[in-house]
Amino acid sequence: MFEITGGKVQKAKKVVLYGPEGIGKSSLAAQFPNSVFIDTEGSTTELDVKRFPKPTSWEMINQQVRYAIQQGPSLIGTLVIDTIDWAEMQCNESVCASHNKKGIEDFGYGKGYIFAAEEFGRFLNLLSDVVEAGIHVVLSAHSQIVKFEQPDEMGAYDRYQLKLGQKTSSRTAALVKEWADMVLFINYKTFSVAADQKGTKHKAQGGVRTVYATHHPAWDAKNRHGLPDEFTLDYGQIAHIFAGAAPVSPPTQIAPPTPPPTAVVAQTTQTEPAQVASSSQQPAAATPETQDGLNPNIPQSLRDLMAQHQVQEYEIQLVVSQKGYYPNDTPICNYDSSFIEGVLVGAWQQVFGMIQDARNKIPFS
């Protein structure tokens, strides 16, 4: 039997804010309830906001989102990704690294964009899990102006769109718009256009930052809350939508997330596994160290994940040697960059799972 219910369902919201650079997207997002930023650009340094460390890889962004889910609405009211178009670039880099490609178009026949859209779709599903946990999600994005051709041959005109997937083969912009409950376009509204004495040169005069909440031939926008077509850039205009929308669970103390252990590292080569080294063996070569005790020559994207999960270089060397990729005494900084980004970073959850297995197998002395 199925239960039929009626009425509105109170739940957290999925919001997209987009517009030209410097218009105030981040400042608006900062006013959402108890907002915490994933600052992909590192551009919120002048704002008094709570933020995660600047992510240096696509995997790190995903880890931060999972951490937000575990913390719950008692500690995070709104998760802000600022900006989603910079996150998309890291997504594309991860897809390229996992397939040993230099660029998204190196796949040929648009396959790279298909892989990227699939990965990006999984990320949007993860953000939906954030919403289900009772946390609002705000994605800020830059806008781009594109030439739009009317299908009825009435002419072409410029229109504003999300600066996502600037190639026609990309599908990420459509995915984001469909995913969101609310897409708000922010721009300066021009009051008048003045011409010079000859009437040949024109320039805009005056303007106010304006939010556009409904679709228009010149821009993408939507909302499901009966907002006016346009209003001044003021959080007070939309604050009522988020008041009490997200259910708040009792405060809980949750440790930082650790991915579930798995048995294998993603395969990128057909090299046969080498002999498994002793789990207690550590390379003897001395290396310079940073404050977190890691070799500063290790690429930043991997070093951040190692520091976050308290993983030492010898532990990665061990699991890599177990799979037969490199000898156990090979420093990580000597690994091929595509192997580091495509396997160690791109499949970090599997790598960390193997490290946890190795830790569990070390005998007590």
Results as ranks from 00 to 15, higher is better:
residue 9 V to W: 11
residue 11 K to T: 14
residue 12 A to L: 06
residue 13 K to D: 09
residue 13 K to H: 14
residue 13 K to N: 13
residue 13 K to E: 14
residue 14 K to T: 11
residue 14 K to Q: 15
residue 15 V to H: 02
residue 16 V to L: 13
residue 16 V to R: 02
residue 17 L to P: 08
residue 17 L to C: 09
residue 18 Y to S: 03
residue 19 G to K: 03
residue 20 P to L: 07
residue 20 P to T: 11
residue 24 G to I: 09
residue 25 K to H: 10
residue 26 S to E: 09
residue 27 S to D: 04
residue 27 S to C: 04
residue 30 A to M: 04
residue 33 P to V: 12
residue 35 S to R: 01
residue 39 D to H: 01
residue 41 E to G: 08
residue 42 G to N: 13
residue 42 G to I: 10
residue 43 S to T: 14
residue 44 T to I: 13
residue 45 T to N: 10
residue 46 E to N: 12
residue 47 L to H: 00
residue 48 D to N: 14
residue 49 V to N: 01
residue 51 R to P: 04
residue 53 P to L: 00
residue 53 P to F: 03
residue 54 K to E: 13
residue 57 S to R: 08
residue 58 W to I: 03
residue 59 E to Q: 15
residue 61 I to R: 03
residue 61 I to C: 06
residue 62 N to I: 13
residue 63 Q to E: 15
residue 65 V to L: 07
residue 65 V to A: 07
residue 67 Y to L: 08
residue 68 A to K: 05
residue 72 G to Q: 08
residue 72 G to M: 07
residue 72 G to V: 09
residue 75 L to D: 10
residue 76 I to K: 05
residue 79 L to K: 05
residue 82 D to G: 10
residue 84 I to M: 10
residue 86 W to T: 15
residue 88 E to R: 12
residue 89 M to G: 14
residue 91 C to H: 06
